[in-house]
Write a protein that binds this DNA or RNA. Structure first.
Lengths: 194, 194
DNA sequence: GCTACACTATGACGAGTGTTATAGCCAGGA
DNA sequence: TCCTGGCTATAACACTCGTCATAGTGTAGC
């Protein structure tokens, strides 16, 4: 078996994303990511010469792309259906892990970085957030929503979903996300059918 | 000077809260908290025999109480004014720290904990979130809002604010919070004057 | 005076961290 | 056959971490 290199690489990235969304960036060590992916520690620095920074950045992009692909597919049925799928995805993540996992993009956004530098992983997180927002807003606009209102609502959707997921983990309850979901759906419905 | 003991203790708690909201719980070491508060490391374990767990728990409650007191005061002018103050506080925190600081309660909610245990710090975070929600919801109800709608909207306010603050840090821009603020204000206005 | 006790100073323990270096493996091409 | 180069194995470096123990300080109350 020759070309299992990219396979190991992908497992590393996926494993890192999974650990980051459960424990946060700082508590995710390269050693444990490698062990979890059954990959030697040395290979990590072979695949990711940029070290932890690069691995984390790719993990954020990986998770962001997975959600974006799902959004792209579900939004074809309309903005409300896409929103519902987006919220259902987060609900599935927190319930299927017994409130242990959240969003790796959020996790990365609130952790340490020196005052003067702007780590690549933060920039990746910003891009992911912007991408989700753009997908949701575009879909609303294509269904007759006021362009500015669509942009604002898309931001609210992402912010409320991310915040609600964190609150669900703290309270060990899906109530925050469920309550937020009901209101976001209603808002989207009225914004689309303006 | 005899009774500066509680002063050191308070500085430790306040410093821990500040570091947690900037770097997260895991990147906040007791050594650095002690150094920042100009307190010996040994004193930390004198004041907080429960170790890091206890210090973090008190820091979360400290930060939560500070916001709760502010909310209590500003909500006396009405739900919309209270909401405005709530959102302005977060805006001030992120701008005055050049997007370095966020919410310690959120930070603590998304970090590591073993699958079987439920750390005290997580319970404290849940209480803080519930407290903010209750304050906002009660104020809306006292101003004629539908009880159930008030509860839902209060949850949305806290979730959206927390999520928006994190997004602002990632994007180094107050835009997410500003857009979310406009919509939450509008929603609160229409919910109160039902 | 002197004891009691809140607090400090200091150092150590074992464990874990990111990162680097070096030697070794083993399939593919010449 | 040899050699090359992607990958692995292993160990080490120089930290930092939470926590504990122990000896020492100084002030308050008797």
């Amino acid at each position: 078996m020759t070309e299992q290199n990219p396979l190991s690489r992908q497992q590393l990235v996926a494993g890192a994303a999974d650990m980051i969304r459960r424990r946060g960036l700082n508590a995710t060590s390269i050693r444990e990511v490698a062990k979890h992916a059954q990959t030697p520690l040395g290979s990590t620095y072979h695949y990711f010469p940029g070290g932890k920074q690069q691995l984390a950045t790719e993990a954020v992009r990986f998770a962001g792309d997975a959600v974006a692909r799902m959004l792209d597919k579900e939004l074809r049925a309309g903005p409300v259906e896409g929103l519902r799928a987006f919220l259902a995805l987060w609900r599935e993540i927190i319930t299927s892990t017994d409130f242990q996992a959240g969003c790796p993009v959020l996790a990365v956004s609130i952790e340490e970085h020196a005052a003067d530098e702007r780590p690549a992983v933060l920039a990746a997180a910003a891009e992911v957030f912007n991408g989700w927002e753009a997908q949701l807003a575009d879909s609303m606009r294509q269904h007759g929503a006021d362009p500015q209102a669509a942009g604002q609502l898309a931001t609210l959707v992402v912010a409320a979903a991310e915040g609600a997921v964190a609150m669900c983990r703290a309270q060990r309850s899906t109530r925050p996300l469920d309550q937020v979901s009901a209101q976001l759906e209603e808002l989207t419905r009225t914004t689309v059918c303006n």
